[in-house]
């Protein structure tokens, strides 16, 4: 028996919007730790890892570990029927081939339940070791989204270069080139507006903008984003979900031939 009640149901709506472009079908794993997902895009170039910790739910009952295969487009269709202030409860019985999403309006005057068929999905879990990154950039998530969007109108790939002075995003295309430098800026009124660079050594890596733009669908989940870079690893783009967990995206770099 599984029963997860989330008063801030809008979080779940935002999570689905953040991952459904990248991944079509995925297994949601439920354990005592929390509600999680790890899935790669169809080309095995990008991976999304979601964690919503059990403590973040108002009620969390998960009698045994459960893996529920879902089409994310269909989950999104169901969750779009929930109001933005609704309380969302996810329910499933052991051995059942369906999951139920229950939506309650804040004053309890409207209760809806949507039952969705589960599917069998062969999931490929990657072991992702903890790593020391050469550079970690924290910046406003809206700024990062704007940069990715702007650069993708010029080129297909971005070179992200980190030095002590700042982080540079560069692209080149048929019509010309573009460089955007964000300097370290800790002295802002609000911490979420800061750009902070933790650097062990300078690093420069190339990535496909198409994927980074897809990651920025998570922008509504967090005011800030962190970008962790090492020359021999996929980049990690992390959006923290307040008090609950995170959505992390991993993207394999492009390498000069």
């Amino acid at each position: 028996m599984l029963e997860l009640r989330l008063v801030q149901g809008s979080l779940l709506k935002k999570v689905l919007e953040a991952i459904k472009e990248l991944v079509t079908d995925a297994n949601f794993d439920c354990s005592a730790t929390g509600f999680s997902l790890q899935a790669m895009d169809s080309s095995h170039v990008a991976l999304v890892a979601l964690l919503l910790r059990s403590e973040g739910f108002e009620h969390y009952r998960c009698d045994r570990n459960l893996s529920m295969g879902m089409n994310l487009g269909n989950v999104s269709k169901m969750l779009r029927c929930a109001g933005s202030d609704d309380i969302i409860t996810i329910k499933a019985d052991d051995g059942s081939d369906t999951v139920t999403f229950m939506f309650e309006s804040p004053n309890q005057d409207k209760i809806a339940d949507f039952e969705m068929k589960l599917m069998d999905i062969d999931s490929e879990h990657l072991g992702i070791p903890d790593a020391e990154y050469q550079a970690i950039v924290r910046m406003p998530s809206g700024e990062f989204a704007r940069i990715c969007k702007d650069l993708s109108s010029i080129g297909d790939t971005v070179i992200i270069s980190v030095t002590k002075e700042g982080v540079k995003f560069s692209t080149a295309g048929d019509i010309g080139t573009a460089n955007i430098v964000c300097r370290q800026n800790k002295t802002v009124d609000k911490p979420e507006e800061a750009t902070v660079i933790e650097m062990q050594e300078p690093v420069s890596l190339t990535f496909a903008l198409r994927y980074l733009n897809s990651f920025t669908k998570a922008t509504p989940l967090s005011e800030t984003v962190s970008i962790s870079l090492s020359s021999d690893l996929p980049v990690v783009v992390e959006y923290k979900i307040a008090d609950m967990g995170y959505v992390r995206y991993y993207l394999a770099p492009k390498i000069e031939e």
């Binding site: 879990h125 992702i128 690893l233 996929p234 991993y250 394999a252 492009k254 000069e256």
Partner: peptide, 14 residues
């Protein structure tokens, strides 16, 4: 020219 690498070049199946 740059070549797109895949995640399997970096991570192993768990």
């Amino acid at each position: 020219l740059s070549r797109q690498t895949g995640l399997y070049s970096f991570f192993l199946l768990a």
